[in-house]
């Protein structure tokens, strides 16, 4: 999977982000299917078979079906997008993703009118994922977006990082990246995409709705009940590196309009 054209500055906002090392990005992951430790995914995710891979796309679409990864990538422009990833645990890093806009795939399968949400599901393979033997969450991991969020040009499906194939611990072979939301929204190793009218089940919200909302937009003013979201530890920045968290993780200019009129302290 080669590196395609580089995204223009408008879509790399906020600009001037310096990416973390490949080492940081691939050794500090939350992927609970492989264990809850930050190093567990790097240690155990190699067990996941990522080729061949297919994604079932169903629900309110014109062309439902099981799409092989090759069909999904066909005709897509793989771009580099340097995004800050802000974890709900109040740390962040900067990642140079390679991927394509989710809307290109949604256009390919034809979203029917009436569809309002997109639901995503991660692979569930007990033989390859040692973490799922513990019910940390109600597996399989599921996430979702409102259709307008999914169609937003900042929302991508990533297939690589640093111009290399996506490492398994980062959600190979295909993962979502939604840079203005907390990292857990950016679901990994996607096997199902469903277009639907109702707001989908989402793993963290449905495990604990007081702590995790459906929207989960990065918002320094709305604390997680157990910790503040006002600032974040900068991974790879050495000891005592901390920055103030930006509203929408710095992507407010592009996405704030999606939420105009909504009370974001209610719709957290």
């Amino acid at each position: 999977m080669g590196l395609g054209s580089i995204a223009g500055p408008a879509l790399a906002a906020p600009e001037g982000l310096r990416p973390n090392d490949f080492e940081d990005i691939t050794n500090y992951n939350n992927y609970y299917e492989f264990g809850t430790g930050k190093e567990d995914p790097a240690r155990y995710a190699h067990n996941l078979t990522v080729a061949p891979w297919s994604v079932e796309i169903n629900g309110m679409v014109d062309r439902p079906g099981t799409y092989g990864l090759e069909d999904i990538l066909k005709g897509k422009t793989i771009e580099e997008r340097i995004y800050r990833l802000r974890c709900v645990e109040a740390w962040s890093m900067v990642i140079p993703w390679n991927g394509f806009e989710l809307r290109a795939l949604l256009d390919q399968v034809g979203v029917q009118s009436g569809a309002k949400y997109v639901a995503f599901e991660t692979a569930l393979r007990p033989d390859e994922m040692r973490g799922v033997s513990r019910r940390v969450l109600d597996w399989p991991y599921r996430e979702g977006l409102r259709l307008d969020e999914a169609m937003h040009p900042l929302t991508i499906l990533a297939t690589g990082v640093y111009g290399r194939d996506l490492p398994n611990q980062n959600g190979a072979p295909l993962r979502l990246v939604v840079p203005w939301k907390y990292g857990f929204k950016s679901i990994k190793s996607i096997v199902r995409i469903t277009l639907q009218e109702e707001q989908p089940y989402t793993s963290w919200k449905d495990a604990n709705h007081r702590e995790y909302g459906f929207y989960s937009n990065v918002n320094p003013e709305v604390s997680h009940p157990r910790w503040s979201q006002a600032s974040e530890r900068v991974i790879g920045g050495g000891l005592r590196s901390r920055r103030d968290t930006d509203m929408f993780n710095g992507y407010g200019e592009e996405v704030a309009s999606l939420y105009s009129g909504m009370d974001l302290s209610q719709n957290y």
């Binding site: 080492e23 940081d24 050794n27 500090y28 930050k38 190093e39 740390w91 530890r233 991974i235 790879g236 000891l239 005592r240």
Partner: peptide, 13 residues
Amino acid sequence: AALNDRLGVDPVR
């Protein structure tokens, strides 16, 4: 180890 970058990606944590 933290001062000498030997505690992994997130030494503070």
